[in-house]
Design a protein around this nucleic acid. Sequence first.
DNA 1: CACTGGCACTCCAGGCAGACGAGTGCCAGG
DNA 2: CCTGGCACTCGTCTGCCTGGAGTGCCAGTG
Lengths: 338, 338
Amino acid sequence: MLDDRKLDVLRAIVQDYVATHEPVGSKALAERHNLGVSPATIRNDMAALEEEGYIAQPHTSAGRVPTDKGYRLFVDRLAGIKPLSTPERRAIQLFLDGAVDLDDVVGRTVRLLAQLTHQVAVVQYPSLTRSTIRHVELLTLAPTRIMLVLITNTGRVEQRVIEGPEPVGENLLADLRARINSIVVGKRFADVAQLVQDLGESFTAEDRPIVTTVLATLLDTLVEQQEERVVLAGTANLTRFGTDFPMTIRPVLEALEEHVVLLRLLGEATEPAMVVRIGHENMHEGLAATSVVSVGYGSGDEALAKLGVLGPTRMDYPGTMGAVRAVARYVGQILAES
Amino acid sequence: MLDDRKLDVLRAIVQDYVATHEPVGSKALAERHNLGVSPATIRNDMAALEEEGYIAQPHTSAGRVPTDKGYRLFVDRLAGIKPLSTPERRAIQLFLDGAVDLDDVVGRTVRLLAQLTHQVAVVQYPSLTRSTIRHVELLTLAPTRIMLVLITNTGRVEQRVIEGPEPVGENLLADLRARINSIVVGKRFADVAQLVQDLGESFTAEDRPIVTTVLATLLDTLVEQQEERVVLAGTANLTRFGTDFPMTIRPVLEALEEHVVLLRLLGEATEPAMVVRIGHENMHEGLAATSVVSVGYGSGDEALAKLGVLGPTRMDYPGTMGAVRAVARYVGQILAES
DNA sequence: CACTGGCACTCCAGGCAGACGAGTGCCAGG
DNA sequence: CCTGGCACTCGTCTGCCTGGAGTGCCAGTG
């Protein structure tokens, strides 16, 4: 059904449309790409491609435009990932190496991605559940008020204020702190839940209330995946979408403000591979004309979290995928070092 | 020069223009506001107002539009601050009371402001320099690596990793921690600099290198105002600006991404009073058509930081100012309680 | 003297017709 | 199976016109 040449034609259509942002006709195709055949032949192929739903024409007498299905085929089978140039790689490394702490790394990464791809960049903070614990600290703020500080191997710090049922002695607190750390340090979040729960039973009944409260908060912090932080940059690039702004940019900006939506767009953090979601595949009404390219990043083999970019479906997929992959790699390296 | 009636006319023009977003003519003015005079008379007044630079006409045969100078006069002398309705106040309080920690307070505040004003909201985290210190913690991450954690009375937590010149003993660390806390707790950032500096001299020469490094980092954290964090919400509201999007929305989005610009827009944190900056007063090319309403907020008499909104110069100033003031008050209350 | 009604003028917005051109589908011929 | 040619469609651009809103000015009036 789908000739090699028909695929060539589809590839050419996608490339031209991405470059010009205008429907592409048979004549222009024959001229710009040397396909070795005449416009008339290309027209026949285009008719077939349209029949199959890979391209469409906005108006009866206009050129063709790729459909979501067409982009999907292009990404899956017709184009690779375009590696970055050496200067670009060097620039990335240089820029990211200058970061001083986790916030800085994430901040620089998201700005870098936005600049590199000329699109909206999204970076998720290293997930808590996949991190290991470096230290747990308990501080007395007031007689009945304790602050719990949790530090991960990626440098992320979470804090919670605990309102205790009664004043807590420094000795007890020191004891609790020591015991908690002895069992959790170096372990992954997901693995310590049971250990922490069991810990409470080794304290005297007198201390139980306070200990239980603290441990419950700790558990809550460990488990509560909900507070996955994301940052974004490059929203100004949305103005490149087209000239039919109001309708198209509005819902996108709204979607970007909903962190829940953002996280869903990036996809499951467990999936480290690069994912491209095109148009309607995003399952979000306002994002029907946008694509998301995301990939996991992490210090070791598996992903700590995800990052990616969001842009119009008519984006330069090979280039964008190359940039996203490269940035993810370097961020992984940086995090592994610190 | 400027009659009472001329001022009435200007007020009417501003109100109508804000409501309709269209140049307003003399006839419509006479009909909608009962100024007690005929359109012809109003035309004369309008000519005078235009002469003085308070209004302008986009085209020769169009109605009049307020200039920045006109809005300025309107804000300063012709309009008050419109208080919020009781239900609105209750909604604010309810929504903010649900916050669990500082991040949550700030996050809720900024979303609330955006929703209330239908504009872009900006909230600055409580400034470090104006906060007092609640606790300083020193943690050993690795033999030569120490983490410094700083907790303020507003619940803000700052952390730094210190790479020490040599391994540091737990005893020394505990001693240092105790001594630091004994002199800094409860004091304001600005007031402890000298005290911290002096502290180093009370240690033995042997411990000096490590102590000096730690204290230097602490000082750096205290002084470095630079890292003032701001968050924003409601960028989707920018699409209300007008139909001539591309030109107008682009530079605004770009400006909003520059935190430095944002902070400058909010103004000096030392100024607790409400500030309205109109159009060119922002001294920023891309924001020539936007106004900023900002005000300090804080638990006590003086401002911890600022918050505000940014919108088109043709905004509802009384309503916006009312919302900004009300939100600032409630945030102040919330922070004072915690 | 201030206000009013009338009048001529300006100029933008929108509708309409026509020319143009890009692009298509189809068909006959190589 | 490919190619060149041809008729057809339709969107865009241009110029033109008209309607209407709004203005400025002027003479008249209390």
